[in-house]
Design a protein around this nucleic acid. Structure first.
Lengths: 193, 193
DNA sequence: CTTATTTGAGACAGTTATGTCTCATACACA
DNA sequence: TGTGTATGAGACATAACTGTCTCAAATAAG
């Protein structure tokens, strides 16, 4: 679909240069500027759609993870594997603070953070994360390390196949329970990153 | 100094809105736009000076740490305490990729990363960090977690006095030696963040 | 008080981006 | 082949920002 290739182009261009002009995105997509405007009447429409599309891709990648019968920490490992490759998807937000105030975008964003917080709480419950560490910090650390992992791969500092595992290890041991505790429980449903 | 308050204003404004106009920075500094241009002839000059000033502040904060007789991991703890409060100083770089290509800025930036890498290697040598983890990843994780700590404080998710310790713990336990190993050695000179 | 310097306000030109519009062409489809 | 739709190129108006310049007022220095 033309719409999709426009969003792909926007993601690619804006990740490298968050202030890029519409013309540059159209060029990258291989279409005329007028055609881009036919799909997205304003720049803000495009940015908003890109944000929602990025959130959708993140959802898609994490929903694919089978959670039945997996310990919560295994799920988190899979979450890292799934979303580290998407690490640059939200880079454009840094110079588009307005889009985060859009109700629909904000709702979707908050929901993903909330699902991640639930997974963190499940890990605390099964004893694989330290209850004394604020869930908000665990979530912040995961977010930061996902991007760091992506960036390290992109910069050639870390091998692509190692990146997610390194980030996962950093979180798990860094914020794991001081006492290894009882063996991880199995979980039934609902997980996310 | 007028120059300094202009740089402060630029840092404050650009951290929130990396694409902010010169007029907005001048207004924040409480001076006319013409006055700003008298100190910094072009926008690029201002951005460049801000980058160098931020690097200088980071240097200043870390040079204050006494390293004699301290174990490398204690030094890293102090580094976190010192630079987490400066966490937003380099946010504007995200939409100013050009300034990172400036030779002077790039040299200063690389030097700081290099000094941090040296500290990490010292910690590996004294057995407080896992030798199997690439130094590049440790450095990337420290960078990412410093910003996450600052951001968590700013967003009210984490108490200001706890932030640096949480980030430090995440790195130390996350990337610490699997075997606690011999007791940390004392070190003599040179450290940095 | 007088003089020199600095400042703020704003006019101005030049550039660049956005968003609208037209029109000729390419293409799909009957 | 004929018709309708989507496209690309580009002209166009508008807006915003940059960087220069002028001038009057404020401030400091003598």
């Amino acid at each position: 679909m033309a719409r999709q290739s426009l969003l792909d182009a926007a993601g690619a261009v804006l990740a490298r240069n968050p202030g890029a002009a519409i013309a540059e995105i159209a060029e990258r997509a291989g279409v005329g500027r007028a055609t881009l405007y036919r799909h997205f009447p304003t720049r803000e429409d495009l940015i908003r759609a890109l944000a929602l599309e990025s959130l959708r891709q993140t959802d898609e990648a994490t929903q694919r993870i089978p959670v039945d019968g997996m310990s919560a920490d295994s799920v988190l490992a899979e979450v890292f594997e799934a979303i580290v490759p998407l690490g640059d998807r939200f880079r454009f937000l840094s110079s588009e603070p307005a889009v985060l105030r859009d109700p629909e975008v904000k709702a979707a964003f908050d929901r993903q953070l909330e699902e991640l917080a639930e997974l963190v709480d499940a890990m605390k419950a099964e004893g694989s994360l330290d209850r004394a560490v604020p869930t908000a910090w665990v979530v912040a650390a995961i977010d930061a390390l996902v991007y760091a992992a992506w960036d390290s791969v992109e910069g050639g500092a870390v091998a692509r196949r190692d990146a997610a595992a390194l980030a996962f290890r950093t979180v798990m041991r860094g914020l794991g329970a001081a006492d290894p505790g009882s063996a991880p429980q199995r979980r039934r449903r609902s997980a996310k990153g």
